[in-house]
Every structure is written in structure tokens, then in C-alpha cells.
Design a protein around this nucleic acid. Structure first.
Lengths: 185, 185
DNA sequence: GTCTATAAGGCGATAGAC
DNA sequence: GTCTATCGCCTTATAGAC
């Protein structure tokens, strides 16, 4: 029991990888069970439907995002350092994923506005990031433009740069945001 | 011949609407021919495959984007006015589409990086918008931050705000960009 | 938990008659 | 251009035996 990963986790790990890289609609149940090396009965034992697997996938991404960022920004002590770590974190995310983009933005683009549960999950995740940025800017010793406005628009820049990064397949856009921010702060 | 829309255009119009609103993968051939009220033979007579229809869809979006913007920004004479019209245009686009997002971003999110032809079409479209912004900033009478850097990052803000707009289902993010820009320029 | 079999339907695409 | 029929494949999901 100690050395092997539980079936549920194996399913979720494989689904996570495939949903993120190939897309949700382009990933079939058969591919998931084949790559996870489990029986189809086991899948439906743990997840009643493919939609439930999608929800579990996004909840896992949500948890892991903040855990990974906390680890990534461990050394940052000042608000200014934290803000720059935020950008660097998203640069790293895109580099290790080979510019696959943001899983939350991707799923919204794929499913549209119909699925309310998914939509609200994404909205909550993005709001949490934005509020986090706002709190750092609030602590910042800076006498310039309205801090909340600056925080909100930096967030939008990073979101746009993430998209741009997946289109151009390089980190140029995210580096440009860093450069811009260095001129402001 | 004068009063009726040609079959090819009827197919493309229906496909455009469905690909944009429902997504490419979630739109089937059968739905297209049903809503366009044409025979399946006619579709494959005009478009050899669904993929060819997708290319035609994006090329049409590309053409129409710049034509529509030219009309929208007709009254703008100064570079500053043109820049603000660019944001207002994208606000209007989201309002009339009920926050469906950007068709180019959506298709990249859906298909990933595999399809090279589609990817390059999107890249070219976004570059064209960015270069357009750069040229207005260049003409701008403004002594602040590096103009090219500012243009690039405004573009990223608008891209991010467009995404944010489809997630929150309101224009708040795009309005925030306008507010931010008014403080800068 | 494993396996195989299969239901029920949608998919893109083709063929042939009119 | 229209129509219907069909191919081969894939999809999600279920059932039953071990």
C-alpha cells in the first residue's frame, strides 16, 4: 500500500495532464484509462461521469496553484519582491509546460459560458489571485497611481501576457510586463 | 441571384456563429448543415473538410475585424483618440457578443499548439493589432515611459481584460484599463 | 479492484440517385 | 444544387462475470 499510488490519484493525474495539454473535449475516456492503466469500471467507480472528473481536475489545479506559488515565493519578504515573484512564477509555469497556457482560461474558452459550476470555479480562482496582488500593492510604499487600480491592471497584463506567451511560444510578453513594472515601481 | 445569399456564404455565416459561440469541437457538421438549411453534399462541395471550414472562418474574422474597427474609429483623428477607440471597440465587441471572448484566443485554447496553420493565423492577427497600437504611440506627444513598451503592455492589458470580461460577464476589466490609461496619458 | 462485451448515439466523410 | 443511405470510427456509459 505504501509504494503504489492509489487508483483514484492515478486517474486524476493522467486526466490532469491530458485535459491540460490536449483539451477536455479532445480527450476521451478510453485514452485516460489506457494511460492510467486501469479498467473502465474503476474509472466510473471513482468518478460518476467525465464532467465530475473535470471538476476534480480544476479543484486540484486550484489547490496546487497556491501551494506551488507559496513554495516558489518563499524567499520573498517585501511586497515588491512578492509582486515580481508572481510574474516569475507564471513565467516558470509556461516554460515547464512548454507554453500550454493557463488551464483555467483554456477550459472557459473550450466550454463557453454554459457550464455554471465550472465558470464559477474559474472566476473564484482568478479573483483570489487578483485580491492577493491587491494586498501586496496596499502594503507597498509607493506614491503614484491608485494602488488598487495598478494591482488590477497588472493582473490583466499578466493574464494577457500568458495568452500571448502561448501564441508566440516564448516568454517575451511576460518579460515585457516585468520591464514595464520596473519602470513604474 | 440578386436577392438570395449564396450557399457558400450561408455555410460560412452559420459556421462562424457556431464555432465562435459553441466552440469548434462542440460544433458538428450536422448542426451546421441543419442551421444553414443546406445539403451535406453542398457543404463538402464548397469545403473539402471541416478543417478547411475552420480556416475560412478565421480568415473571415481577420478581415472583418479590421474592417469593423476602421468603421468604428472613423471619427478619431488624434493618436490618443485612436488608442481609446481601440479599447472602446473591444468593449463593444464583448457587449454585442454577450461576452463570448476573442475568437482567435478561443481557437488556440481549444486546439493547442499542434495545428501550425491555425497557430500562425492567430499570431499574425495579434501582431497586426499590436503593431497598429505601436504606431499610434509613436505619433503620440508624450514624454513618459518608453512608448513601444507602453504600447506592448497596453495591448497585453486589453488581451487580459478581454479574457477577464468573459469570465466575469461584465465590462469591468476593460473599463479598468481605460481608467488606468487615462491616468498615464 | 480486474476483465470483456455492448448499448446507443454522434462524428466526419463518401456514394449514388435525382 | 437537392436528397437519402451508409461507412467506419469514436464517444460516454452500463452490465455482468471473475
Amino acid at each position: 500500500m505504501a509504494e503504489k499510488i492509489k487508483v483514484r490519484d492515478r486517474i486524476l493525474n493522467v486526466a490532469t495532464d491530458l485535459f491540460y495539454r490536449q483539451g477536455y473535449n479532445q480527450t476521451g475516456i478510453n485514452q485516460i484509462i489506457a494511460e492510467a492503466d486501469i479498467a473502465i469500471g474503476s474509472l466510473y467507480n471513482h468518478f460518476p461521469s467525465k464532467g465530475d472528473l473535470l471538476v476534480a481536475y480544476l479543484e486540484k489545479q486550484e489547490e496546487e496553484w497556491f501551494a506551488a506559488f507559496e513554495h516558489f515565493s518563499k524567499g520573498a519578504n517585501t511586497p515588491r519582491e512578492k509582486i515580481f515573484r508572481f510574474i516569475d512564477f507564471r513565467i516558470e509555469q509556461q516554460q515547464v509546460s512548454a507554453f500550454c497556457g493557463c488551464p483555467f482560461i483554456k477550459i472557459v474558452a473550450e466550454l463557453g459560458q454554459d457550464d455554471d459550476k465550472i465558470h464559477k470555479l474559474v472566476e473564484a480562482h482568478k479573483d483570489k489571485q487578483r485580491v492577493m496582488l491587491q494586498s501586496w500593492f496596499k502594503q507597498l510604499d509607493y506614491e503614484g497611481i491608485d494602488k488598487k487600480l495598478l494591482a488590477d491592471n497588472l493582473f490583466l497584463m499578466v493574464e494577457g501576457a500568458t495568452i500571448s506567451t502561448t501564441i508566440s511560444r516564448n516568454t517575451q510578453a511576460l518579460e515585457s510586463v516585468k520591464k514595464f513594472l520596473r519602470k513604474l515601481l
